[in-house]
């Protein structure tokens, strides 16, 4: 066992400083409880003041996240968390903006925003708690569900190839791509810390079991493993690696150096009354 006293500055904030007094509605056993712990640990480790952090989400089990935090939160409509987070970060670059949600919210109804958030590379951290199911509407197949997973809505399975979020993120230009497992708080916390620190759009897929609709996912803890190779800044190497793994390799898989979205706002600007003179004939 080893311990790293890595933060030089005195840490005065604890994970509990980032938790609200609202009780999560998640099922006991749900991976999202651990993610809540991991995110609050990461924020404490980074010594970010709760009022300077905003957590934005859409709709779904994991999108209930903001209310459980003691940061500023925005719980919007289904699939639109990333645009809200993008607008907030561009308007307020001084804030640390996290976006949390699930696989249905992020990859199905919000899929287009996911592509463009990766492309745009605004300095956000997008944490998707992936349980391969729509939990809040009682367990329908999501984009990351295997094609043969049986459900009353699509008996025998959707027959549709599972969405590959990490591959898509990488191809679309995300600057940081990682996979974590909710049941491994230490590694997940470290990954979230790195994701928040990394400039540009950071995408973290956290495998987070749904014990109610996918009890089989309790076995994930026996499948996951630290990725056998170290992280890379070479997108083609990262692509090969991500496309050939079985979805259980954990760690930072790609850390790019693309400059983040440039927010151009002049420090000195003209008075509003100066605007409009161009219309004078």
């Amino acid at each position: 066992m080893s311990q790293t006293a890595e933060a030089a500055a005195p840490v005065t904030l604890t994970p509990n400083d980032y938790k609200s007094n609202i009780k999560p509605i998640w099922c006991p056993g749900c991976g999202d409880y651990s993610v809540l712990l991991e995110i609050t640990k990461a924020l404490a480790a980074l010594a970010l003041r709760p009022e300077n952090v905003a957590i934005v989400s859409g709709i779904g089990c994991s999108s209930r996240f903001p209310a459980y935090s003691n940061c500023y939160g925005f719980h919007g409509v289904h699939g639109r968390a990333l645009p809200v987070a993008t607008g907030l970060k561009i308007a307020r670059p001084d804030l640390t903006v996290l976006c949390t949600g699930g696989d249905g919210d992020g990859f199905s109804i919000g899929g287009n925003h996911f592509l463009h958030a990766c492309r745009r590379n605004v300095d956000l951290t997008y944490i998707v708690m992936d349980n391969q199911v729509y939990g809040m509407t009682k367990g329908q197949a999501s984009p990351t569900t295997d094609p043969d997973w049986d459900h009353v809505l699509m008996p025998g399975g959707t027959g549709t190839r599972a969405f590959q979020p990490l591959v898509i993120a990488l191809a679309s230009g995300a600057n940081f791509v990682a996979r974590a497992f909710s049941g491994d708080p230490a590694m997940t916390t470290d990954i979230i810390i790195e994701a928040i620190r990394h400039p540009g759009f950071s995408f973290v897929q956290i495998l987070s079991p749904c014990v109610t609709f996918r009890p089989d996912q309790r076995e994930w803890r026996n499948f996951v493993r630290q990725a056998p190779v170290p992280e890379t800044n070479d997108p083609s190497r990262a692509a090969r690696r991500i496309m050939s793994d079985d979805g259980f390799n954990l760690g930072i898989l790609y850390r790019g150096d693309r400059p983040p979205y440039r927010i151009s706002r002049k420090a000195e600007f003209e008075e509003v009354t100066a605007i409009g003179k161009e219309f004078l004939v």
């Binding site: 066992m1 006293a5 840490v11 006991p28 991976g31 712990l37 708080p185 803890r221």
Partner: peptide, 26 residues
């Protein structure tokens, strides 16, 4: 040392319950 602890070979501290082991009817 007060910083962030990492437990090697463990996902949590040795004396902590993994929340994934819970069931609402347990």
């Amino acid at each position: 040392p007060t910083a962030h602890f990492r437990w090697v070979g463990l996902t949590s501290g040795p004396e902590s319950t993994d929340p994934a082991d819970l069931h609402y009817l347990m």
